[in-house]
């Protein structure tokens, strides 16, 4: 049996979500008696392979992949290349394991839950014709059956999902597992990428606003900005606070429309789903859609002038007051402790 962490490698640094998937793979493997593999796919696959071994993968399957666009430090490939790569790795590795005299081993393929994965997970499942469970927060596997927990109904309900088969795919929500080093001696297998027919599709342009290469799902501290921050003065206060508490800025739907911030920063059911150490909600009322994207945060602190705001129902600490008074005073207090 094998638990395979599928890791798209398009950046200079390995995402922490990839390390979380590796960690979850080692946990599932140790309880099911399986082996951990890392499938590294992308232009930086070779570079990241040693790190995968450091996090418990005894078999490294490395496939360099062509990039369709490279701009401002962000590499992107069209999803079809990744689906073809996963398909090829499954075929090749199964054939290798068969020639070693072993029967085809049951395989659990674990993905992270980034937009990149969401782009390809369904297509991978259809291509391999195997069960897929998306966005799980916990799972168990015995080589045949997989039982996974996944939030549903805008994260208000936990759904227990069952799948069975010799190959099963799951994507794992980011921020829930602490990456845990488990160095092992690994063997590396290298594969040539298949010739992908892109069916006429072209990646024309990558719009990566300067400095906007923040990946919120990776951030330990997130400052969520809602309607309560209404102008440039407020935006400046938030920026100062972010520097002082090492936070990354996220937005609610209100600011998707205001144009004050980049759309990439949207957190919610229709944006990024995050689970940082701290989510500091500034002037966010706490709509169902927004909460679905941040309710798994380890600690939530909310500031809102409306004591009835629904965000206070899930905040560990709620502060009732005017942001435009509180933020300058808080910034002053932080500056004086750090001075």
């Amino acid at each position: 049996m094998r638990v395979c962490a599928v890791i798209p490698c398009f950046q200079e640094e390995l995402r922490s979500s990839a390390l979380e998937v590796l960690t979850k793979a080692t946990i599932v493997a140790s309880s099911s008696g399986g082996r951990v593999e890392a499938w590294l796919v992308g232009p930086t696959a070779e570079k990241h392979s040693s790190k995968a071994a450091q996090y418990g993968a005894a078999t490294l399957r490395v496939m360099e992949l062509e990039v369709d666009s490279e701009a401002k430090g962000v590499n992107v490939s069209l999803g079809r290349r990744i689906v073809d790569a996963v398909d090829e790795l499954m075929t090749q590795s199964t054939a290798e394991l068969a020639t070693e005299g072993a029967p085809q081993p049951p395989s659990l393929l674990l993905f992270d839950n980034t937009e990149l994965t969401k782009d390809v997970l369904g297509a991978c499942g259809a291509r391999l014709d195997v069960p897929v469970i998306a966005d799980v927060v916990d799972l168990s596997w015995d080589g045949h059956q997989c039982i996974a927990q996944r939030p549903t109904y805008a994260s208000k309900v936990m759904s227990k999902v069952h799948a069975e088969g010799s190959v099963i795919l799951c994507s794992i929500r980011a921020g829930l597992f602490e990456p845990d080093e488990k160095p092992v001696k690994a063997t590396t297998h290298r594969y040539k990428s298949p010739q992908t027919d892109l069916l006429g599709q072209v990646l024309k342009e990558l719009v990566a606003p300067e400095g906007d290469t923040v990946d919120l799902t990776e951030a330990p501290i997130i400052i969520g900005v809602g309607r309560g921050i209404a102008d440039e003065t407020g935006k400046d206060l938030v920026a100062k606070l972010a520097t002082l508490i090492r936070g990354e800025i996220a937005i609610s739907r209100a600011h998707f429309e205001s144009g004050m911030y980049s759309h990439t920063l949207l957190v919610g059911q229709s944006g990024k789903v995050v689970a940082p150490r701290l989510y500091l909600a500034l002037g966010i009322s706490g709509s169902i859609q927004h909460v679905a994207g941040m309710s798994e945060s380890h600690t939530i602190i909310a500031i809102n002038k409306d004591p009835e705001a629904p965000i206070f129902d899930l905040a560990d600490l709620g502060i009732v007051g005017d942001l435009y008074q509180i933020l300058p005073a808080l910034i002053h207090a932080l500056e004086s402790t750090q001075a």
């Binding site: 897929v132 549903t152 905040a315 007051g321």
Partner: peptide, 24 residues
């Protein structure tokens, strides 16, 4: 279906936090 829902349960509620009101 290749996946089936075995059960639906309410999401564990976050413990009610502290609400602070008062002067600045």
């Amino acid at each position: 279906p290749s996946t089936t829902i075995e059960s639906l349960t309410p999401m564990p509620e976050r413990a009610a936090g502290e609400l602070v009101e008062g002067d600045l």
